[in-house]
Amino acid sequence: DRHTIHIGDITIHLEGFSEEELKLAEELIKRGIHLEEVKRILEELYR
């Protein structure tokens, strides 16, 4: 499954994450956390 996060003019595609995980990812990215770090956090929390 493919999910999309929109932040301003930026569109990020993250596959294989639930709606809850994507909301967390979006919040972290909006707070300035680097995408690679966001992915690592999600994997630690949900895998």
Rank of each mutant, 00 (worst) to 15 (best):
I29W: 03
A25K: 02
E19K: 11
H3R: 00
H6Y: 05
S18Q: 09
G32I: 15
I5N: 03
V38K: 00
R47T: 15
A25Q: 01
E43F: 08
L28F: 06
E43L: 07
T4D: 11
L35S: 03
D9P: 07
R2P: 15
L28E: 00
Y46E: 08
E43C: 07
D1W: 00
L35G: 04
E27K: 09
R40E: 05
L28Q: 01
S18A: 09
H6F: 06
I5Y: 02
Y46H: 12
E15I: 15
G16L: 12
V38I: 12
R2V: 15
E36F: 05
I33C: 06
H6G: 09
I7M: 11
D1Q: 01
A25P: 00
T4L: 06
E20S: 07
E20G: 05
I5L: 03
E44R: 01
R31K: 11
I41Y: 06
I41G: 01
G16P: 02
I29G: 01
L24M: 15
T11S: 14
E43K: 02
L28G: 00
V38G: 00
R2K: 15
F17C: 08
E21N: 06
I12Q: 06
H3I: 11
L28I: 02
Y46F: 15
H13Y: 12
H34Y: 05
H13S: 12
L24P: 00
S18P: 07
I33F: 11
R31P: 05
E26F: 13
G16V: 12
V38S: 00
V38P: 00
Y46A: 10
K23S: 08
I33M: 11
E27M: 12
K30C: 06
E37R: 04
L28M: 12
I5E: 06
R2D: 12
R40Y: 05
L22Q: 08
E20N: 06
G32A: 07
E20R: 04
G16H: 09
H13V: 06
I10G: 07
H6L: 11
L28Y: 05
L35M: 11
R47I: 15
E37P: 00
R31S: 12
K30D: 05
T11K: 06
H34K: 14
E36L: 08
D1N: 08
L14R: 01
I33G: 02
H34A: 14
H34I: 05
E26N: 07
E26H: 07
L14V: 07
H13M: 13
L42Y: 00
L14W: 05
L45T: 07
L42V: 09
E36K: 04
E44Y: 07
R40P: 00
E37A: 06
F17H: 04
S18D: 07
E37C: 02
S18F: 06
E37L: 09
L42C: 01
D9Q: 08
V38F: 04
E27V: 10
G16I: 15
K23G: 06
E20F: 06
V38L: 09
E19H: 12
R47E: 15
G8T: 07
K30N: 13
I10D: 08
I12K: 05
I5H: 04
V38D: 00
E20T: 09
H34L: 13
L24Q: 05
L42H: 00
S18N: 13
E26T: 11
E36S: 10
E36R: 04
E21L: 14
E26C: 06
E15A: 11
E43N: 04
K23A: 07
I12N: 05
H6N: 12
V38C: 01
G32L: 07
E20Q: 11
T11G: 08
L45S: 03
S18K: 07
R47G: 15
I7H: 09
S18G: 11
I33L: 13
F17K: 02
D1K: 01
K30I: 10
L35K: 04
A25H: 01
L14T: 04
E36W: 05
L24N: 03
D9W: 13
E21W: 15
T11D: 07
E21C: 07
E19R: 05
G32V: 07
E15W: 15
E43T: 03
Y46D: 07
K30P: 00
G8C: 11
L22K: 11
R2G: 14
H3Q: 02
E36H: 07
I12F: 08
E21Y: 15
K30Y: 14
H6D: 12
T4C: 14
E20A: 09
E20L: 08
H34F: 11
L45W: 08
I33H: 07
E21F: 15
E44S: 01
H6E: 11
G32Q: 02
E15N: 11
I41K: 03
E44A: 07
L42T: 00
E19S: 12
H34W: 08
E37H: 04
R40N: 05
A25F: 14
Y46L: 15
F17L: 07
E20H: 03
H34D: 14
E43Q: 03
L28S: 00
L42D: 00
E43P: 00
E36V: 06
I10Y: 09
T11N: 02
R40D: 02
R47F: 15
F17T: 05
E27T: 11
I33N: 03
I33T: 09
E20W: 03
R47S: 15
L14F: 13
G32K: 00
A25T: 04
I7F: 10
S18T: 13
H3M: 04
G16Q: 06
D9C: 04
T4A: 05
R2T: 14
R47M: 15
R31T: 13
L45R: 01
I10E: 08
R2S: 14
R31N: 14
E36Q: 07
K39W: 15
G8I: 09
I10F: 13
I5W: 01
R40Q: 09
E27Q: 09
L42Q: 00
G8A: 11
G8F: 09
H3S: 04
A25V: 13
E15Y: 15
I7Y: 12
T11P: 05
I5K: 00
E26M: 11
L42W: 01
E43H: 05
E27C: 03
I7T: 08
I10L: 13
V38Y: 01
S18E: 08
H3T: 09
I29N: 01
H3C: 02
G16T: 11
I5Q: 03
K39S: 03
L42F: 03
I5A: 01
F17A: 06
E27W: 14
I12L: 12
R31C: 15
E26I: 14
V38R: 00
I7A: 10
V38A: 02
E27H: 06
L45D: 02
H6Q: 14
D1G: 03
V38N: 00
V38H: 00
K30T: 12
G8M: 09
E20D: 11
Y46W: 08
K30G: 11
E37N: 02
E19M: 14
